[in-house]
Design a protein around this nucleic acid. Sequence first.
DNA 1: TCAGCTTATGTCATAGCCTGACAGACAGCA
DNA 2: TGCTGTCTGTCAGGCTATGACATAAGCTGA
Lengths: 216, 216
Amino acid sequence: MDDASWPDESRRRRKKRQTRDALIDTALDLFETKGYEHTAVHEITDAIDVAERTFFRYFASKEDLALFFVKQEMDDFTDALAARPAGEAPLTTVRNAFRQTFEQLQGDDHLRNGEPRYLTVIRLIDSTPALLAASLRYVYDNSDRAVVVLSEREHVDPDVDRRPWLLIAIYGALVALVHREWRTSGCGGVEDMLASFDAYADQLGPAIAGRWSTSG
Amino acid sequence: MDDASWPDESRRRRKKRQTRDALIDTALDLFETKGYEHTAVHEITDAIDVAERTFFRYFASKEDLALFFVKQEMDDFTDALAARPAGEAPLTTVRNAFRQTFEQLQGDDHLRNGEPRYLTVIRLIDSTPALLAASLRYVYDNSDRAVVVLSEREHVDPDVDRRPWLLIAIYGALVALVHREWRTSGCGGVEDMLASFDAYADQLGPAIAGRWSTSG
DNA sequence: TCAGCTTATGTCATAGCCTGACAGACAGCA
DNA sequence: TGCTGTCTGTCAGGCTATGACATAAGCTGA
């Protein structure tokens, strides 16, 4: 995002990155003010004076641009999962990968109107059915990969042993919950998210083991 | 689907239902042979000789038609959940609602080329990214409703007590797994699905309680 | 049976998303 | 300078979806 950080970059590459960043920034601005569905692609490209056709040379679709950061977040999670030390217990691994991913999000993202860019994107997604659908599909696809990673780490066959699926399902539910909390009451920071995670984990056993009631 | 079953139905209503059914049948045929994305709406409407515009008076979108049965399945599940007797334990309730929904699916659906129509649809969805995304979003929306139903049954506040979310997340994972199994190795019947459900439930406690490994 | 209302459909026009094909501009390199 | 490969603009077109208006068909009451 900072042009000076790649001084060795060729002029051609730099211009390309500038155009891509300009597309993202302009698009997010327009999405925020006019809404995703009421922003035409040509409005984005007109604003930075490139042809509409150019947009589709950078992004496969309008959706693709809007989900740029979400995809990165998901990929980061799977990468973090795969990179955790082998001795770690699976639940701990997921928890740590989760922590790393969100610390990264909060760390290296730059601000827009005083709030991190991914927050804008999450609100946008939650308020736009088409984007919500696409991001859920990405989570779904990513779950498959995460299950493979977990299964290989623990040397189990996911077709027989359902535990990897369970863990990832819980992770998915957690991410959804975290997004929900962000949307309504703002972002409480990494520690709040981990507290949510632990609350899930703590309630998991009792939820299934005995009778499920307010007193239990 | 059988015209004789509503003898009192007005001519207008009957024609409307016939057109709707013809649209669904023709569309599924074309989707199956040509693929969803390579089937244009005008091809569907040409085949039964109505205007393209008419299609969009019956269905909000091409997607809407393809997900017709999925939406019904989801709604049936939530309805079944709400209708279960109050004394039942939550996990049992979900299990029974699950059973009811799929028994209903297998019962009253009519055959296409020797297999139930919803099987065609599920394969279609799993092989079409756009449809998968849309159906996941519908599951997501439905989860919210299911959580509300469960929470009210058990008099808990879902914002504090995460257990309703956990149960529904597990249900979601199960549905995904069942669909996966259907897609690859055909449909094994209600009992197989319940066995999957129970396998999840049985592995849930041990998965979290102790160290998660092949020996545990 | 006819008039009048409602509903379903057809027709036309248009916006928006997306792709393919081709040509021109430009950076990088010999 | 001239060649090469990449990026971009332009044009044409297909597909999904919606709005506006007109027409036809079904229904209802006198």
